[in-house]
């Protein structure tokens, strides 16, 4: 790794950040901005899942329950007491942490598949509960008809804006935050523990790592930030429907995006999230109104082919290109052997 290389990367990064910050000036149509916001939200959610699913290798297939619990608690508190969603999101996030500990404690002691199956069953159960709970006491949950966020017009304190632009910047900050946290975890002691227990749980335990404890921490971090994603979704769409926010499509989508992008890496889920969500929106836009099921069929085929031909994720392609580029660059400069430092 050379000084020149680091500078080159930070220049690329800086340019990228500036471009992202200026984007709403170029993209003025609300629909296009909405699509971009959704893509960034998926990148964010895939990154949240990646902390437990990628770093720790614990396959959670029910992360929709965390988006749901964050969204529902925040919205219910806002609708009933007028509590600002900015404060409510901490309550929702805290509840998500509690839920993740309740699910994780009994299942993390077992082999991975039990955790995966338990998360599926629990999330299906919660979807049924949400669909059939009209209200709890004075709190309106909405049941199958869904829950509408009380509209107060454009108000920053209430997390409601008429323009899409504030949402864009909020989701951008959330995405940067989760990338920063993922990078921090990966380079911290916790990150090394997680990789160790992902690769070989028995060996990790033999080395003195408290396997269950570290899984629970990773699960709680992941749950908290996933819940924040749910809150953002709720305030963006302003309508909660149990199947959409907690259902299997929400849960599996996060996993698809992270794995197709490259699970266990910092930037893989971000790339996978943005690319795949964009592809999905484009297909839906052009084919959605035509033959029923066609756009999801194509989407499924893309995921299928990507898993078969690029099982380590799209990030590997990027790394390869990056390596080739830097090798060429170094050969020209008379140096060789420098690894690509951006390899997230």
């Amino acid at each position: 790794m050379t000084g020149i290389n680091i500078n080159k990367n930070s220049v690329i990064l800086a340019v990228l950040v500036v471009l992202l910050l200026l984007l709403p000036m170029v993209v003025t149509k609300p629909y296009y901005l909405h699509v971009i916001i959704i893509c960034l939200l998926w990148a964010y959610l895939a990154s949240c899942w990646n902390i437990i699913g990628g770093f720790a290798g614990q396959l959670s297939l029910g992360h929709g329950i965390y988006t749901a619990i964050g969204a529902y608690i925040t919205v219910i508190l806002f609708n009933t007491f007028g509590l600002s969603p900015w404060l409510g999101l901490f309550v929702g996030g805290g509840a998500a942490i509690l839920l993740s500990l309740m699910i994780g404690y009994p299942t993390f002691g077992l082999r991975g598949a039990y955790y995966a199956l338990a998360t599926v069953a629990i999330s299906e159960g919660i979807v049924v509960l949400l669909n059939n709970t009209g209200s709890i006491g004075r709190f309106t949950v909405g049941g199958a008809e869904g829950l509408i966020v009380k509209s107060v017009g454009s108000s920053a304190a209430a997390f409601q804006f008429n323009s899409k632009i504030p949402y864009y910047y909020i989701v951008l900050i959330m995405l940067f935050l989760i990338i920063f946290i993922a990078k921090w975890i990966k380079e911290s002691k916790l990150g090394y523990y997680l990789v160790a227990l992902r690769e070989d749980e028995d060996a990790a335990a033999a080395m003195g790592i408290n396997v269950r404890h570290n899984k629970l921490i990773a699960g709680a971090i992941s749950a908290f930030f996933t819940a924040l994603g749910g809150v953002f979704y709720a305030m963006l769409i302003r309508y909660l429907e149990p199947n959409a926010i907690a259902g299997a499509s929400m849960s599996t989508q996060m996993v698809f995006l992270a794995i197709v992008g490259g699970s266990g890496t910092v930037l893989g889920p971000v790339i996978g999230g943005i690319l795949l969500a964009l592809i999905s929106e484009i297909i839906r836009f052009y084919l959605g109104g035509q033959l029923m099921g066609l756009h999801l069929f194509i989407y499924g085929m893309i995921v299928l082919l990507m898993i078969i031909y690029q099982p380590r994720g799209i990030i590997e392609l990027f790394e390869k290109i990056g390596r080739r580029f830097s090798r060429k660059h170094n050969d020209e400069g008379g140096r060789s052997g420098a690894e690509d430092p951006s390899g997230a």
Partner: peptide, 19 residues
């Protein structure tokens, strides 16, 4: 894990093909 996801993707393909 990828294989598991592969089967999930296969499920989406089959269901929508049937649709």
């Amino acid at each position: 894990v990828s294989v598991l996801l592969l089967t999930a993707a296969l499920a989406i393909v089959l269901e929508n093909l049937a649709l």
